[in-house]
């Protein structure tokens, strides 16, 4: 323990005369000091609770929240293995083993929506993921600050729009009398009922996704670009690198960690394609390409009340997601030494 005298000498604010509770305060500081000095020497839980009980009380409500609204539903997934009766226990009534899993594995409809999910997720990864990188690199070459700022301000805007608004815009622009059909008519084509055509759904989904996310997606890349050391460009120039080569050998490696982290996150959410957006945009005519795992289980579970069957599908999807993100993370740690945690 540090002596009070020693403490007084080191902390000018801790004069006992000025503060009536100085002693207790000093003791607290002393505790904090020794704690920092003697790292590795751990206190017991009882000591920690006595000293930090106020901090622990701050944790009660948030942890209770996570327990009830995050972890209880995780446990609630047991109804994938149990028969569930609406009105009965939320954890189901009797064990039925893997019955519901066998049900969907043998369900041809399930594999259709599984395929649709993989295609939509894959297209997003392939097309929507690289766009912010390109836009950030283009913005990086702009010299007039006001112009750069203008492009940024405008391109961030769609990010703040509700998905319902985006869906509303999509319906209007792709409607029979909408802008796209006006262009089709102008080049002499017949109007296309885009929103009712299964072969157009993926194009519409991906383009609306790009519209909403490309601008906002540049932020992290632009942030990474500002951290690149200017001396690296100078050195590259002395070595005779032109602008293209500077971009290739300095700029891109500079934002590589950001790219990899975002790629991992994107791969992790690859199967969780925009449920809400698909739900708003699709209709029975576009089901052949639009119906994804999450919308399928929504109809089975919520609309038709097959809770256990839908939970089994949902659990399967969540496990795929977890596996994807863990393996993407492990892979990137091994290959490039960057990982999320």
């Amino acid at each position: 323990m540090t002596t009070p005298q020693h403490l007084e000498a080191s902390s000018p604010a801790g004069g006992q005369a000025q503060s009536p509770v100085g002693e207790r305060g000093a003791a607290a500081v002393a505790l904090a000091r020794t704690d920092r000095a003697g790292r590795g020497r751990r206190r017991t839980w009882r000591q920690s609770l006595r000293k930090d009980w106020q901090l622990y009380t701050l944790l009660v409500l948030p942890l209770l929240f996570l327990l009830v609204f995050r972890y209880l539903p995780m446990v609630g997934n047991v109804i994938a293995f149990r028969r569930f009766r609406p009105g009965g226990s939320i954890f189901g009534d009797e064990w039925v083993g893997l019955r519901y899993f066998e049900l969907f594995v043998n369900d041809a409809k399930f594999w259709d929506v599984f395929w649709n999910t993989a295609v939509l997720g894959g297209l997003s990864l392939l097309i929507v993921f690289p766009l912010p990188i390109v836009l950030a690199l283009l913005l990086n070459e702009v010299r007039r600050i006001w112009f750069k700022r203008l492009v940024q301000t405008v391109s961030y805007l769609p990010h703040f729009m509700s998905i319902v608004i985006v869906a509303g815009m999509v319906f209007q622009i792709f409607s029979v009398q909408g802008t796209v059909n006006q262009i089709v008519a102008a080049v002499g084509g017949d109007p296309v009922t885009f929103m009712q055509r299964a072969d157009w759904f993926r194009t519409i989904y991906i383009s609306s996704e790009a519209w909403q996310t490309v601008g906002w997606g540049t932020i992290l890349y632009l942030a990474a670009l500002t951290t690149i050391d200017a001396q690296l460009y100078e050195a590259a120039r002395i070595d005779g690198a032109n602008r293209w080569k500077q971009t290739w050998h300095v700029t891109l490696p500079g934002i590589r960690p950001t790219m990899i982290v975002l790629l991992i996150l994107n791969i992790g959410t690859f199967m969780a394609v925009g449920f809400e957006k698909v739900l708003l945009l699709y209709n029975p005519l576009t089901y052949p390409t639009a119906d994804v795992i999450s919308t399928y289980l929504y109809r089975i579970g919520i609309v038709s009340s097959n809770f256990s069957y839908a939970t089994a599908i949902g659990l399967f999807e969540a496990l795929i997601g977890l596996t994807l993100i863990l393996s993407a993370n492990a892979l990137s740690r091994r290959l490039v030494g960057t990982s999320l945690w």
Binding site: L72, P73, M74, G76, N77, L297, I302, A318
Partner: peptide
């Protein structure tokens, strides 16, 4: 807290809850 970012209960268990 962080674990809930990568794994969640899913639609139906939440709905039941």
């Amino acid at each position: 807290a962080v674990f809930t970012m990568f794994f969640n209960g899913g639609l139906i268990p939440n709905y039941v809850l």
